[in-house]
Design a protein around this nucleic acid. Structure first.
Lengths: 334, 334
DNA sequence: TTGTAAGCGTTATCAC
DNA sequence: GTGATAACGCTTACAA
């Protein structure tokens, strides 16, 4: 079934059928009605490949969501949808695996969908360095800072990772903690981790505390690895009275490990997470965390995407504030 | 950049370029090498729309994953990828929102991608009834039973939901519980829920116990609603000493609610979940659960998909066993 | 082994 | 307002 068949059926030409199916003007009401009726009856759908092949650009906004099991990105998506749904821009959401190359995927989808702009939910600096030059539509990288990536069409919005980590450590120090362990990603490969690590150093220095290398444990962002990291940390440094984990998922894994070690939370040891996922509120005890604001991240992202309406707009890199949510997993040490 | 440009550049014709780029035989080594080199240098990619437009069918297997934050489906996907990766069939994974219509989406993607077969991870009976007749490639619905859906090209694999629920209830009864609350989805709209509910009834009857209507609370499959449901149940029936929740996510929400009510788990009240997610092992206490086997579900699914190689194969509906994982959230009541 | 050319289903530019 | 018709970039007979 093609528009040709539809044309034959209704007695009009393919041109008219196409115009009707695309809600274009300069069509008689009679034609519009007849064709629409026939299309509905036959449950006709335009062939998307032919359509895209022919069209230079679509109106769509592409969202590439990196990692499929990620409450934060899910929150971002909900906020994006809420803001975009009522506009003329169809949203194409593409979820890819944590380990896939999001930029290559974007290149591919640009060919396929010819989007107006792209929102990257999460991303890896190296991937951008390698492949982003193939992309020439406006892009915003969300949750990562692209300040030092040299692409005029790549803006970014991220939480203030340095300040956020400082807040976490300050909170623990205020509670009286002096021996604080930190669990995070690879400082070499994850730029976000590097920033949060810097925040930790700042806070410790300002407080006049040392932050020995072996108070840090590198882990992947999973329950399992949070668990493993916490055990490793406590084995090495039994005197720790607090742990800051750079994600809520890691933090929950860590809490389980501490419980297994016979530690009470927060009486014996305190835990602070990062992200502010709903999940943390259902942990026992409820998780204290530095919350990122999905709404704010999305507000800035869409504004940045829009700012590329100006053809010689340049890249902008913004930062949004975070909030310390004090819950049950932290309190004054014994 | 098109194959035409590439042809001009290398001095060969578009036909030869196309053959090279598709690894077809009947091309001289000289041509192959020259064209491949030029394509790599220009970082050339075939236009996917033109390609699909031209091609009748692709070799790809389409996977429609319903719900983006779902550890079980994520496990299924990993297993699928492991099994499919080493074959000639490219995998197209499409994640859609929990509330979207997966069948309409599949219809759309069939037009676009012309897949060889489709795997639905999760699905809604009503959607299939309404739109599945548009689909004419082999399909397998995973985690839902499609036994009573009248489509020869729709097979299904699901866990034995009835037996699974019976196992959960039996376990609690064996521990001495007599007052058991159940949290699950809508028995009207979720067929999976209906089956699990039937399992509960079977077990209670067999054990000579009653299962009053107000021991059941309907909830959505989220932490929040698991929390709400558990509170509602305990408010109505303070004498309950155990709760069976039809998903681990609900169960974790429920555990948090019970803790807030001052109940100790498992001393005062026991909790059994459903799914067997890794997450449950990081809850405090660790969650007892009826685990579905991602590997088995995937094994059966792929076998069923393959069985459609026979052109007049008919729909098959299979069931895979589940495993009760006894953890810390259940034990003998006081 | 290689080249030529017909189409895949649209959209868009023309005439009319 | 409507109808031809030329692309869009590719694959694939068929011819050479």
């Amino acid at each position: 079934m093609t528009i040709k068949d539809l044309a034959a059926q209704t007695g009009y030409s393919v041109g008219t059928v196409s115009r009707v199916l695309n809600n274009q003007p300069h069509v008689s009401e009679a034609a519009r009605e007849a064709i629409l009726r026939a299309a509905a009856a036959a449950d006709f759908k335009l062939n998307p490949n032919a359509k895209q092949l022919k069209q230079q650009q679509s109106n769509s906004i592409l969202v590439i969501c990196k990692g499929t099991v990620n409450e934060l990105f899910d929150n971002l998506l909900v906020a994006i949808q809420a803001r975009i749904a009522q506009t003329e821009y169809p949203l194409i959401v593409d979820y890819i695996d944590e380990v896939e190359n999001e930029v290559r995927r974007a290149v591919q989808l640009c060919l396929e969908k010819k989007p107006r702009g792209i929102l990257f939910l999460g991303g890896n600096r190296q991937h951008f360095l390698e492949d982003f030059h193939h992309i020439n539509v406006p892009c915003v990288l969300v949750t990562n800072d692209a300040r030092d990536l040299p692409f005029p069409n790549l803006s970014s919005v991220s939480s203030d990772d340095i300040l956020a980590a400082e807040m976490a450590i300050d909170h623990l120090v205020e509670l009286g903690h002096r021996n604080i362990g930190v669990i995070g990603g690879s400082r070499e490969y994850s730029d976000t981790t590097a920033l949060r690590y810097q925040g930790c150093i700042n806070a410790f220095q300002r407080q006049g505390l040392s932050f020995p290398e072996d108070h840090y444990e590198t882990a992947r962002f999973s329950y399992e690895d949070g668990y493993r990291a916490a055990r490793a940390l406590l084995e090495r440094r039994p005197e720790l009275t607090a742990i800051f984990a750079m994600s809520d998922v890691m933090a929950i894994g860590a809490m389980r490990a501490l419980a297994d070690l016979g530690k009470r939370i927060p009486e014996d040891i305190c835990v602070v997470g990062f992200d502010g996922l709903a999940m943390g509120d259902f942990a026992i005890p409820r998780l204290t965390t530095v919350a990122q604001s999905a709404e704010e991240l999305v507000n800035h992202s869409l504004r940045l995407l829009a700012h590329y309406a100006d053809p010689d707009a340049t890249a902008l890199h913004e930062t949004v504030p975070v909030t310390l949510m004090k819950k049950e997993s932290t309190h004054r040490p014994v």
